[in-house]
């Protein structure tokens, strides 16, 4: 399993209700259902991903998150997850509000655009960074919002969202002391555990 997912796994309590937004092929959810006995559901619109989930027996619903999540009641889940997807939605700020309405807690992971390599790429080459982790060109990328570790922290502060804990990992998804001390510069993936 990707090590950002391993970190999330450590944070998740057993036997809770989990909603995984944009669950992809359900790697994390599958693990949580098997090992933490969670009552989990994924939302996804990719046909292949949906099929993989059904194949593995992961409850998955075909639902476009950008069209709203009104079908889920307030505080009806213990945990709402979103890994590496927030940057793909029309209004990440409103989506976070929705996630915190539906879930008592949320865990969100995202690529940190403040990573030194992205900064260097833009500064030296003058062009939008393309990396192994974000391998798209500006015109075909599904990632329509780029933001940094600090941007996310600031948004949480503005919205009075509590950061219960966070982690930051590099491209190999390892946790190092220098990443921890300067996450905005050194983390490639940021992981936030938040609540109201």
């Amino acid at each position: 399993m990707r090590s950002d997912l391993e970190i999330i796994d450590e944070w998740v309590q057993p036997n809770i209700r989990v909603l995984d937004l944009a669950c992809g092929p359900g790697e994390l959810l599958h693990h949580l259902i098997k090992n933490k006995q969670v009552n989990g559901y994924g939302l996804e619109i990719g046909h292949d991903d949906l099929n993989i989930c059904i194949e593995k027996g992961i409850p998955v619903l075909e639902q476009n998150i950008d069209e709203g999540l009104q079908n889920f009641d307030d505080q009806s889940f213990d945990l709402v997850l979103m890994t590496h997807a927030l940057q793909q939605f029309r209004r990440p700020d409103l989506l976070i509000d929705e996630m915190l309405r539906i879930g008592k807690e949320c865990i969100i992971t995202f690529p940190n655009f403040g990573h030194w390599r992205s900064r260097l790429h833009l500064a030296l080459k003058g062009r939008m960074p393309v990396s192994d982790f974000l391998p798209y060109n500006w015109y075909d990328t599904p990632n329509i919002h780029f933001f940094t570790f600090q941007d996310f922290e600031r948004l949480c502060k503005e919205k009075n969202i509590k950061v219960l804990r966070w982690a930051a990992v590099d491209g190999q998804l390892k946790d190092h002391w220098w990443i921890r001390s300067m996450p905005n510069l050194f983390s490639e993936t940021a992981i936030f555990h938040i609540s109201r």
């Binding site: 009552n39 559901y41 949906l50 989930c53 027996g57 075909e62 639902q63 009641d73």
Partner: peptide, 9 residues
Amino acid sequence: VKAGKSVSY
């Protein structure tokens, strides 16, 4: 989903 049942759609 509300009832906690296993469902795919």
